[in-house]
Each structure stands twice: as C-alpha cells, then as structure tokens.
Design a protein around this nucleic acid. Structure first.
Lengths: 241, 241
DNA sequence: CGTAAGTTTGAAACTAATCAACTGTTGTGG
DNA sequence: CCACAACAGTTGATTAGTTTCAAACTTACG
C-alpha cells in the first residue's frame, strides 16, 4: 500500500487487521515473517467445506474474515454444531490425527491455513505462541462447559436466549456492532447448536419477539431491545419483570 | 524404599506410581524436585469439596488416587456434571480468575495441589510441561465435543451406553481392570452428567440388564457382557443383532 | 438392627419432536 | 423482468420420550 520501492517481501501479517485478536498477537514482530512463510491465505465461499469430517487433519486455520460452523455427526446423520467461529478464532485446537468433525464456511470466509506439522514446529520455536494457544484452549474449555450446562439443563427458551447473548458478547469482543446483531447461520444451524429443532427455534424467536425482548430485522439481523431481560431468561430467572 | 542412608530429601515425585499417566511424565528427572518443592499432597474424604463453586481459583490439582466430579450450576440449582476425573487426570485446565465450577471427591481421593501462580511459573520454566498441558487441553476439548453431541442428539439409552463405554475405556487407559467395571458415582451424578434424571438412568440400566448387555454387581460394579452391542447402542446403530 | 441414603418401579403430565401445510425469500434461466 | 424452483422460516396439530410425582424397595453403615 505504501508508495515505497518494489517491496520484495512484504509479509501478509505485519499489517493484518485481525492480528490484535488472533493467536499471532502473541508472536513478536521479528517472528511474523516465519509465520508468514508457512501460511497460505485461503478463501472459502458460503457453504464450502473447510475441514472434511473424518479426513486426515492436515491443516489448522486462523479465521481472518467471515464465519464458520464446526460440527460432529452420528452415523445416522444426527448432527451437533459444536461451535461457531468468527474473525480472530482459531480452528484446529481439538484435532487429533484424524478430524472427528467437519467445518464449513457460513458466508464468504478468509483464513490463514498452516500445515499441521509446520504449525507444531512453530509452537516449539515460539513458546509465547504455545502459551497463547493454551490460554485459548482453556477459554474454549470453559465455553464448552457452559454449553454442556445449556444442553443438559436449560429449556428451549433459555437456550436461545443464552445463544443470542453469547453472539452479542462475542461481536463486542471483536469490536463489531452489537446492536444490529448479525447472525450468519440459519435456523437449522442454531437448532443443531442448541440441541433443538428448527421449529422449536422459530417458536422461541416468536416468543422473544412478542414479549418485546428482541426484534428481528431483515438480512439475518436482530436488535436486542432488552438485554437485561434476555440475560435473566438465559439463566432461568423468569420471575422478575 | 531402598536400604540406603538417612536420605534427607526424597521428593515425593520420583517414585510416584501415577507419574506415567500424569502431567508430570513430561517433566525430566532433574526437574521433579522443582515440582515437588511447590506441591502439597492433599487428601479428601468422600463428598468433600475440592474446588468451591465461585471461589477464587487459587489452586490446580493432579489427581493421584480416587475420583472427582466437576460440575456447573444454574442459579436455581439445576446442575450439570461436566466431567469425572480419575487417577492421572488434571484439574484446573479450564480455570479463569474465579472458578466457574465446583469439584468434589466421589470417594477418598488424593491429589497434588499447586498454587495457581507457582504452577504458571513452572509452565514458563518447563516448556515440555506446557506442551503436555496443551495436549491434554486438546484432548479434553475433543471429549467435550463428544459430550455436546451426546447431550444434543442422543437418546437416554444411547447416552447411558456411551457413558459406560467411556468409563470402561478410561479404566483401561489407567491400566485398571475393565471387566468388573467400578463406578464411584451415584445415579444422580450420572444423571447430571448425561442430562437426564435418576429415574431415567435407572430405567435405562434396567433395559441394558434385561437385554443381557450388562450385569449389575454389588458395590457399584458392573460387568459388560456384550461390549460390541453396547458400542452399537452408544452410536445409535440399533438395527443389528 | 434401624435409619437414612440411594435405587427401582409405576402413573400422570409436559416439553419438545414430529408431521404437515403454508408463507416468504433467494437465485436463476427462459 | 418475471416465473419458477429450491431453500428457509413460520405456524398448527399430534405424538412421543422424558420428567415429575409418588411410593416401595434395597443397600450401606453407625
């Protein structure tokens, strides 16, 4: 972008807008080139698979734009979405030799792709990166436990409320607008994430609308009119006004 | 144990029977003393709390004997058991400043307790330990995702079958007998782990018994008579004989 | 032994799933 | 540019699996 000379090797990391919220924020400036050397920038169309369920897990990814759903399936086709990933999120923490899950872009998505082995070597070379990854794994584990509680014990309405609240929180963490809340996933994905059916998700949206807690807008957007009430609903405190 | 001299400082780690399956297996011999310096061996009675829900999470633990349940609660008392820990397991991976969960001994239990800060320093000093921890976090994340699928989409019978199979696998990993399978948790704990009620768990045990897949023995033990059938049930392949 | 805790079993009630129809939206090719 | 097809979302009626409530039974243990 600068008006400088031919610029032989401007690595793609130094000026990356996603770096402050990605794993690479832990990598000091003089290590960025080593990262850049090993990554491929990949673009995925909406609906395109990123990781194929059951495939050898040869790569890990850092999502720089767009959004992704990660899912796990039973032999008869029943499916659970185990997580949604956004800009700044890392894909590949839970991988063993063979991927036990699939991942798919929800909208046009960009990611830095690393060969798994090369990434492993990077970790050994850069302890700060490993520490960052452990921190993220720790955080994801906490999130997963929240989700276990949600799936074990919450009602349909509590689940949807928790979900919307979580989406909103994560949008804010990424410094994206939280009021016209955008959700790139369809009802079926939400249902698979919340352990419900599309019909039940739809009915709960209806209840949240008529009770004036949220308002659905065009283009997969929503406005949270009463965040306080939504938070109460999410934790099962139904008594309060 | 050796008939040697007064032996001034025999650290408790060198001859620890749990080391081959604990995080400390990643620590080289000459680092064990540093570990030993920072830990306290703690014993817990059956039912005794190890981590109090909501308390400042000041410690992390390595379980060396016994078993532990980890749980998370809603304000109105609904509860999910997010995991069971056994000999060799690490407690504290998912901790932030304040523990969002409780942990309680299921039977007489022994653990090495580290102050959280001291442990953090150990990690920085010993990259092998950090790598080991990341590997475990990765593995736990996978397990958690399995559990998400279980809670989202499996029937009561499939859940109990998966649970028993998992217990059996983990017992074998610890090199403990898998045939008379021992389970230290009561029905209520299983129910909270599987997102069911004690009554439903009991009814499913009944079905597994009458169909000849398992046999319940005295003293919280069971025999898995048809592991193949149990595995089919766990994955929803009900058709086969 | 006797009590309390845990487990099993039965009947009724309820939440969410299933089945079904209809509406709205998106994208495409005639 | 509109008609159509495919997909997505909503709404209603019915069903089913699990929960809830209740009581009897079993086991562990002081």
């Amino acid at each position: 972008m600068s008006a400088a000379a031919p610029a032989p090797f401007v690595d793609p990391c130094t000026e990356c807008a996603s770096r402050p919220i990605s794993i690479c924020r832990a990598v000091p400036h003089d290590g960025l080139q080593r990262l850049a050397d090993r990554l491929t920038v990949k673009c995925f169309a909406a609906g395109e698979p990123i990781v194929l369920d059951g495939d050898a897990s040869a790569h890990v990814f850092n999502i720089t734009a767009g959004s992704v759903k990660v899912f796990r399936s039973l032999p008869d086709g029943r499916r659970a979405v185990t997580g949604f990933l956004f800009r700044g999120d890392f894909l590949g923490l839970a991988q063993s030799e063979r991927a036990l899950f699939g991942a798919e872009a929800l909208e046009p998505t960009t990611a830095c792709r690393f060969p798994r082995k090369a990434f492993r070597n990077l970790l050994l070379e850069m302890p700060q990166l490993e520490t960052e990854l452990l921190e993220r794994a720790s955080h994801e584990l906490e999130q997963a436990q929240d989700q276990l509680l949600l799936l074990s014990r919450k009602t349909a309405l509590e689940r949807l409320s928790s979900f919307l609240l979580g989406l909103s929180r994560r949008a804010q963490e990424r410094q994206e607008p939280a009021d016209p809340l955008r959700f790139p996933m369809i009802r079926a994905d939400m249902a698979d994430y919340l352990g419900l059916t599309t019909e039940t998700v739809s009915r709960c949206f209806g209840r949240l609308k008529t009770s004036g807690v949220i308002r659905l807008l065009a283009g997969n957007q929503a406005s949270i009119l009463r965040p306080d009430r939504l938070a109460q609903l999410a934790e099962g405190e139904h008594a309060a006004a």
